[in-house]
């Protein structure tokens, strides 16, 4: 669902999945981002489970739909149903909770396996306001993020810190990916209409690198 032209400018529509364990604050993160900006009371969102937002980035109109997922372990196997066809993923962990960071690693592996490099990933360390209780080191997180081709951000939903930057960066990267896809489509004639990502075989490299801190 990359871009759909409508009238003059181009409007991009992106699907972003939100992943993270139960209490990492992913809900407050998106609620903070989407709150009060557009006060139209149209039913286009479902409280905290499905949110939409319109942006204008460098003259390009962008609609993003944020799909929440259930973080509980027992629903883990349902993940692929949700992130099918998504353009971006926000993976949230709690900087005071080492375990939640391990979960993020699992999701990254899965996303890369299912969607390859077409999906833009953001790894987000939330609860920056609890810096004194930090259990996941900044360095470890950033090195890991780089090794899997993701961007790392620090946010605090409580203090409203770092959230705008996170989404802005994610949108920019999704636009780039969409444009690259368009260009590829433009070059390769023929089956341009429905070249959905098929099965992708991804190198195992990032996993090997992270194994040290995984187990």
């Amino acid at each position: 669902m990359a871009g759909a032209g409508a009238g003059g400018g181009k409007t991009y529509s992106f699907k972003v999945v939100l992943l993270g364990e139960g209490c990492v604050g992913k809900t407050s993160l998106v609620l903070r981002y989407c709150e009060n900006k557009f006060n139209d009371k149209h039913i286009t969102t479902l409280q905290a489970s499905f949110l939409t937002k319109k942006l204008n980035i460098g003259g390009k109109r962008v609609n993003i739909a944020i799909w929440d997922t259930a973080g509980q372990e027992r629903f883990h196997a349902l993940g692929p149903i949700y992130y099918r066809d998504s353009n971006g993923a926000i993976l949230v962990y709690d900087i005071t909770d080492e375990d939640s960071f391990q979960k993020v690693k699992n999701w990254v592996k899965e996303l890369r396996k299912m969607l390859g490099n077409d999906i833009s990933l953001c790894i987000v360390g939330n609860k920056l306001d609890l810096e004194k209780d930090r259990h996941v080191s900044v360095e470890e997180a950033e090195v890991y993020a780089e090794s899997v081709g993701a961007k790392h951000f620090h946010t605090s939903a409580k203090l409203n810190k770092g959230i705008e930057e996170l989404f802005l960066d994610l949108c920019k990267r999704m636009i780039e990916t969409a444009q690259a896809e368009e260009r590829a489509k433009g070059n390769g004639n023929g089956q341009s209409a429905n070249t959905r990502r098929g099965v992708q075989i991804v190198d195992d490299e990032p996993q090997h690198q992270s194994r040290g801190c995984c187990f």
């Binding site: 139960g22 409280q47 905290a48 259930a70 973080g71 509980q72 629903f75």
Partner: peptide
């Protein structure tokens, strides 16, 4: 109450 997926799915 904002029903997130953690609450809604069950």
């Amino acid at each position: 109450y904002n029903l997130s997926m953690d609450d809604l799915l069950p």
